[in-house]
Amino acid sequence: MNKNVQLQDLGSLDYKAAWEYQEELFKAVVDLKIKNRREEGDEPTPNYLLLVEHPHVYTLGKSGDLTNLLLSEKQLEAKGATFYKINRGGDITYHGPGQIVGYPIIDLENFFTDIHKYLRLLEESIILTLQEYGLECGRSDGETGVWLGVGTPFARKICAMGVRASRWVTMHGFALNVNVDLGYFDNIIPCGIRGKAVTSLNVELGVEKVDEQEVKDKIVKHFATLFECIIE
């Protein structure tokens, strides 16, 4: 089992370009697994963790409801935003500047074959990161992602999650709001959940801007510990 994970920080990248790159890596890992099984090979499958920031974009998961996008095509253009229907789980979400997006493309057979455990460890890597900033956060029953104020009238989501897995290979992942313009969430019903707010790390800390590289480093550190992997 290969427990090495290749870390790639893609900087700011158009959503479609990042999606296509994910698909390319994902397909290569799946194809290698198929080849190994057909030919009784044992070539280790690679694992990746992509970090990226996207220009303004709304994405709708395969089980999502298009009516949760509250903008017309012209209004999207006016806001400088794009829209894609994609092949992850979950409903609609927003990506944009000031948000750290993580796409783990890993072969879970290198770690464990449990998609629910995978999602919980992804959440935990964000929870532990936020706790380093003194925030009390956690999970909301029946709703993936990371939340603040769970069980209060002021529940608010700070990190959205949506993944795809095939043959135990994952893609898509998490989106943590760090220095995000929250106004862009007003144009959707985030994750199809009504009556709950969205927040950002800088808002919760009461500062103008949080060091995003510092946040990335903390996420990677906790990811490595939780998945018991070596980050390359």
Results as ranks from 00 to 15, higher is better:
L130F: 12
I158Y: 03
S166H: 10
E132Y: 12
R167M: 14
L128F: 11
V146Y: 03
L128Y: 11
V169D: 05
V180P: 09
N177P: 09
T170E: 10
I158Q: 03
F154E: 06
E143G: 02
V178G: 08
C137Y: 01
G138Q: 03
F174G: 11
N177F: 11
G192F: 04
C137M: 10
G142T: 07
G151D: 10
N177Y: 13
Y133N: 09
I189E: 00
L130E: 03
N187M: 11
S140M: 04
G151L: 07
P190F: 04
C137A: 07
V150Y: 02
R164Q: 12
D181N: 14
G173N: 13
A155V: 14
W147R: 08
T152E: 00
Q131T: 00
I158S: 01
G183A: 15
M161D: 06
V150P: 04
I158K: 01
N177E: 10
I188V: 09
E132I: 05
C191A: 03
V178M: 15
V163K: 02
P190L: 00
K157P: 00
W168D: 07
R167V: 07
Y184S: 07
V180I: 15
F185W: 12
W168Q: 08
R167L: 15
P190Y: 00
V150S: 02
R164T: 09
G145I: 00
G192H: 02
G134F: 02
V169K: 00
G173F: 15
Y184V: 15
C137W: 01
K157S: 01
T144Q: 12
T129E: 01
L148M: 04
C159G: 01
E143I: 04
T144K: 09
I158E: 03
F174C: 13
P153I: 03
G162C: 01
H172A: 13
G142V: 10
F154R: 05
I158N: 02
G162R: 01
G149H: 00
G151V: 04
G162T: 02
I188S: 02
